[in-house]
Measured scan of single mutants.
Amino acid sequence: MTVLPKDIPGDSLKVTVGTANGKPGDTVTVPVTFADVAKMKNVGTCNFYLGYDASLLEVVSVDAGPIVKNAAVNFSSSASNGTISFLFLDNTITDELITADGVFANIKFKLKSVTAKTTTPVTFKDGGAFGDGTMSKIASVTKTNGSVTIDP
């Protein structure tokens, strides 16, 4: 049996954390987006972790974005102690894959008090994996961190 590389060099799934701005007490939304989904033969499963400074940001909610089908079954998240974990699994293993680019999740943060303008990162942590529509590992994932700026 011969195994051929399935990824064209330079191609990767792009996962990007967005940015937001606000004043202390505001609730802002930071999107997590996927790009080049079709090039990577869709997404059938993924789990990953984001870190944030809990002294500056309070997670209000984490909701599935419009590219997630049947989110009540296929999407899960949790947030505590400065870490947000995400889990997606197409429970049907074929019919509810992520097949389009767009917003995977929206994180709502309540901004805490600061004395001066502060930009705090929302960054990928170690761990996690992504699988394509056949549940094979997506070897190349380009992750881009985001941030939230609090301006009193």
Rank of each mutant, 00 (worst) to 15 (best):
P5N: 08
P5R: 02
P5F: 06
P9D: 14
P9Q: 08
G10Q: 10
G10L: 13
D11W: 09
D11E: 09
S12W: 07
L13V: 14
T16K: 14
T16G: 07
T16Q: 10
G18V: 09
G18F: 12
T19G: 14
A20F: 12
A20L: 13
N21A: 14
N21I: 12
G22P: 09
G22E: 14
G25V: 13
D26G: 11
T27P: 10
T27D: 09
V28N: 07
T29C: 09
P31R: 09
V32K: 03
V32H: 09
T33P: 12
A35R: 13
A35E: 09
A35K: 13
A38V: 13
A38N: 09
A38T: 13
K39I: 09
K39W: 14
K39G: 13
M40F: 05
K41S: 09
K41L: 13
N42D: 14
N42P: 04
V43I: 09
V43S: 09
V43A: 07
V43N: 00
G44S: 03
T45G: 02
C46H: 08
N47C: 03
F48G: 12
Y49T: 01
L50H: 10
L50N: 09
Y52V: 09
Y52Q: 10
Y52S: 14
D53Q: 13
S55L: 08
S55Y: 12
S55K: 12
L56I: 09
V59E: 14
V62A: 11
V62P: 08
A64K: 06
G65L: 09
G65W: 09
P66E: 12
P66S: 12
I67V: 11
V68F: 08
V68P: 10
K69M: 07
A71V: 12
A72E: 11
N74L: 00
N74T: 02
S76A: 14
S77N: 15
A79Q: 14
A79H: 15
S80G: 08
G82Y: 15
G82R: 15
G82L: 15
I84R: 06
S85T: 04
S85C: 01
F86S: 03
L87F: 03
L87R: 00
L87C: 00
F88I: 04
F88G: 01
L89S: 01
L89G: 01
L89N: 00
L89P: 02
T92E: 00
T92D: 00
T92R: 02
I93K: 00
T94H: 03
E96T: 01
E96W: 02
E96L: 00
E96I: 00
L97A: 15
L97S: 04
L97Q: 04
I98R: 03
T99K: 14
T99Y: 12
A100M: 03
A100I: 06
A100E: 06
D101L: 03
D101R: 05
D101Y: 07
G102I: 12
G102N: 01
G102S: 04
V103D: 06
V103S: 06
F104V: 03
F104S: 04
A105D: 00
A105W: 02
K108L: 04
K108M: 07
K110Q: 03
L111Y: 03
S113N: 05
S113R: 09
T115A: 07
A116M: 05
A116C: 06
K117D: 05
T118W: 05
T120D: 06
P121N: 08
V122P: 04
T123Y: 05
T123V: 07
F124L: 04
F124S: 04
K125F: 03
D126C: 15
D126F: 15
G127H: 04
G127P: 02
G128A: 02
A129V: 04
A129R: 01
F130P: 02
G131S: 03
G131K: 02
G131M: 01
G131I: 00
D132T: 15
D132H: 02
D132K: 02
D132Y: 04
M135D: 00
M135H: 00
M135S: 01
M135C: 00
S136D: 01
S136H: 08
K137F: 00
K137P: 01
K137T: 02
I138Q: 03
I138A: 04
A139V: 06
A139N: 04
A139Q: 05
A139Y: 15
S140M: 09
V141I: 05
K143P: 01
T144I: 07
T144N: 05
T144M: 04
N145M: 02
G146P: 00
V148T: 06
V148H: 00
T149L: 15
T149A: 14
I150P: 15
I150S: 14
